[in-house]
Amino acid sequence: MRTHKIAAIGADGIGPEVIAAGLEVLTALANKDGGFRLEVEHFPWSSAYYLEHGHYIPEGGLERLKQFDAIFFGAVGSQQVPDHVSLWGLRLPIAQGFDQYANVRPARVLPGVKSPLTNGEDIDWVIIRENSEGEYSGNGGRAHRGLPIEVGTEVAVFTRAGVERIHRFAFELARKRPAKHLTLVTKSNAQRFGMVMWDEIFYEVARDYPDVRTDRELVDAVTTRMVLKPKSLDVLVATNLHADILSDLAAALSGSLGIAPTANLNPERQFPSMFEPIHGSAFDITGKGVANPIATFWTASMMLEHLGETAAAQTLMRAVEAVTASKVHTPDLGGKANTADVTRAVCDYIGNAAPQA
């Protein structure tokens, strides 16, 4: 039997709630499949842990995580801790420390879910976000604090190696999709150094992929195209900051942030990859039991795919689509179901599904 070691980090807000739901569904899949099992270890790292101990990740924590096949992550962010402290204390040290440079965010309207767009059924995108450089590289600083001449700099750092590898990853993914279409998103009309380099390297890499159709769009223009002409897009590749924003728009256009998944991949598999729903901590509904677990289930399906459990991943997505189609919806989708209702419905579908090949 195949064993996969999973590090579960619920962290903050609704994170522990949806990760618990995700693990329940994954257990149901493992029991149904019979060919694999999950060995899960829970890590208490969170903002509450930070307030008690003075750090999110204890000494040697990343070394411990290296022993796992994948990381199943909830959400980080607390009203008691500044956002830049929590992000740089937990999520970014894992993503950057494990060189998870390819952030993959699919977006489509699931059956039974209503998009705010009249042509929402045309949404079928994958946004590839460069996950290690740009404005999130941590380069910059502040000087003359509190004085009228105070200065704050945020330096976007791009390297040829970093840009080339994310473009190559995006081309490889686009090549596997039916449309074989990749859109480069930058802001090279105004940002004439790093963004122009992004453009140049993109078209250098494109020569190795003559079967992939390409086009280029400025980041502001692509937002209008996402709304007005969603069918004209397939795979998009963009910088850390730009793709972070665009993927939230993509999730909203797909019906809710509560259904959107994320994979933070180290494609070379030198380190474990991390899988997380896109929605964040959602303080307003924390503890109410109404968080939408669909984003976590879709994320879990991506994790299973990464682990080589393709049949189980497909079964999980069929279960998710059957449940959304049957209108078992949480309040963010206009329904009255709670987290447990959706989780139970997905587990029931898995239990009744035909045996996997």
Results as ranks from 00 to 15, higher is better:
His4Asp: 03
Lys5Thr: 05
Lys5Cys: 08
Ile6Trp: 01
Ile6Asn: 01
Ala8Met: 03
Ile9Gln: 04
Gly10Ser: 11
Gly10Gln: 00
Gly10Asp: 05
Ala11Asn: 09
Asp12Tyr: 01
Ile14Asn: 06
Ile14Thr: 06
Ile14Ala: 04
Gly15Trp: 02
Gly15Asn: 10
Gly15Pro: 07
Gly15Phe: 02
Pro16Ala: 06
Pro16Gln: 08
Glu17Ala: 02
Glu17Ser: 00
Val18Leu: 02
Ile19Cys: 03
Ala21Asn: 02
Ala21Thr: 04
Ala21Ser: 14
Gly22Ser: 01
Gly22Met: 00
Gly22Tyr: 09
Leu23Arg: 12
Leu23Val: 00
Glu24Val: 00
Glu24Ile: 00
Glu24Thr: 10
Glu24Met: 02
Leu26Phe: 06
Leu26Lys: 10
Thr27Val: 01
Thr27Gly: 14
Thr27Gln: 15
Thr27His: 15
Ala28Ser: 04
Ala28Ile: 01
Ala28Met: 12
Leu29Gln: 03
Ala30Asp: 07
Ala30Leu: 13
Ala30Val: 06
Asn31Cys: 08
Lys32His: 10
Lys32Tyr: 00
Lys32Arg: 00
Asp33Phe: 05
Gly34Cys: 07
Gly35Pro: 07
Phe36Thr: 12
Phe36Pro: 04
Phe36Gly: 01
Arg37Leu: 09
Arg37Pro: 11
Leu38Trp: 03
Leu38Lys: 13
Glu39Trp: 11
Glu39Phe: 11
Glu39Lys: 13
Glu39Asp: 15
Val40Ala: 02
Glu41Met: 11
Phe43Ala: 14
Phe43Pro: 05
Phe43Gln: 07
Phe43Met: 09
Phe43Glu: 02
Pro44Tyr: 01
Pro44Val: 10
Pro44His: 02
Trp45His: 08
Trp45Ala: 13
Trp45Leu: 13
Trp45Pro: 11
Ser46Asn: 13
Ser46Gln: 09
Ser47Cys: 15
Ser47Phe: 04
Ser47Glu: 11
Tyr49Phe: 15
Tyr50Arg: 04
Tyr50Asp: 08
Glu52Pro: 05
His53Gln: 15
His55Asn: 10
His55Val: 13
Tyr56Phe: 15
Tyr56Cys: 14
Tyr56Ile: 08
Pro58Asn: 05
Glu59Pro: 08
Glu59Ser: 15
Glu59Cys: 05
Glu59Leu: 14
Gly60Leu: 14
Gly61Glu: 04
Gly61Tyr: 05
Gly61Cys: 12
Gly61Pro: 10
Leu62Lys: 12
Leu62Thr: 09
Leu62Cys: 05
Leu62Val: 09
Glu63Ile: 06
Glu63His: 07
Arg64Met: 07
Leu65Val: 11
Leu65Ser: 12
Leu65Gln: 10
Leu65Asp: 10
Lys66Asp: 06
Lys66Glu: 13
Gln67Glu: 15
Phe68Asn: 03
Asp69Ala: 06
Ala70Ile: 10
Ala70Thr: 05
Ile71Ser: 08
Phe72Ile: 03
Phe73His: 08
Phe73Ser: 11
Phe73Trp: 09
Gly74Thr: 08
Gly74Trp: 01
Gly74His: 09
Ala75His: 01
Val76Ser: 13
Val76Leu: 15
Val76Tyr: 03
Gly77His: 01
Ser78Ile: 00
Gln79Thr: 05
Gln80Asp: 12
Val81Gly: 14
Pro82Val: 02
Pro82Arg: 11
Pro82Asp: 13
Asp83Arg: 03
His84Gly: 00
His84Arg: 05
Trp88Pro: 12
Trp88Tyr: 07
Trp88Ile: 05
Trp88Ser: 13
Trp88Cys: 07
Gly89Asn: 10
Leu90Cys: 08
Leu90His: 00
